[in-house]
Amino acid sequence: MTAPEHRHLDRVAALLDLGRPEQALAELGRLPAGPAGDIRAFRLRAAALTELDRWAEVADTARYGLGQGPDAELLGRLGLALRHLGQYPSAERALLDALALAPHSAWLLTQYADLCLLVGQTTKAESLVARAAAADPVSPAVYASRYQLAYATGDRRGAEQVAREFLGRYPEHPSALALHGLAAAGRGRMGVASRSLGQAVAQDPTGAAAAEAAWETRVYAHPLLLPLRPLYRLGMFPTWLIAVGTLLVLNLLGWAPAALAAALCWAAYCVYSWVAPPIVRRLVLGRWRG
């Protein structure tokens, strides 16, 4: 490859760093046939397609690139694409082949950990994330996997802590912002969630998952859903405990009318918590379509 062709690929890499995958793909399309078949060009094309969630094309590109010989990054991209295409056993094979070439790659280890989480193998995922964290403790992929792991094991506080650490180290990283927003939403802090997810979308407009989550939190920040904030914030079980405890105390004190009124209010609140979110979602969607 000639020096101008190297510079061309450097420009593509810079575009990817700037979060412009579509422009990066257009630049790659301008490469002549020779350099376009270079392994680095395949890596960059697969990375750009990954950013755009075009998984079938990521898999095709990785396979073409792998025709030139084994490459850990392309095998990792293939594993990631196959995971998104729902082909988990093939994704695992690709990731294990990649890890055979680069056993200490934090990115590959976290990819494999994420795959294990999807099939409920949390213990294995935990060991893989620990190994990835030992290799590169401040990698964004490691933070993201630690968050996923905490979420998968039901450790909401742990997930929030990881999201805070991630955002503290990378204040403008779209994934850090998105995970911070999701953690806040999980704890019922819809205002914070809406802000963080909005910033995540602004940083990475191609992120479909963050955009969808931002829309959801905007729905939950709707004034009609304000009465449900305590329920989301406390969680369902503690809220029910408080309600049932209140009813028991009122009954024990012999305040039957107050107990009846509280029971009716609680029943109405339960029905509202079931009915209101879908109605508000429909309202907001209708207004946006209008």
Partner: peptide, 11 residues
């Protein structure tokens, strides 16, 4: 043992 296949099927 961590890098041996354990996923047999897609859910």
């Amino acid at each position: 043992p961590l890098l041996t296949p354990t996923i047999t099927a897609t859910p």
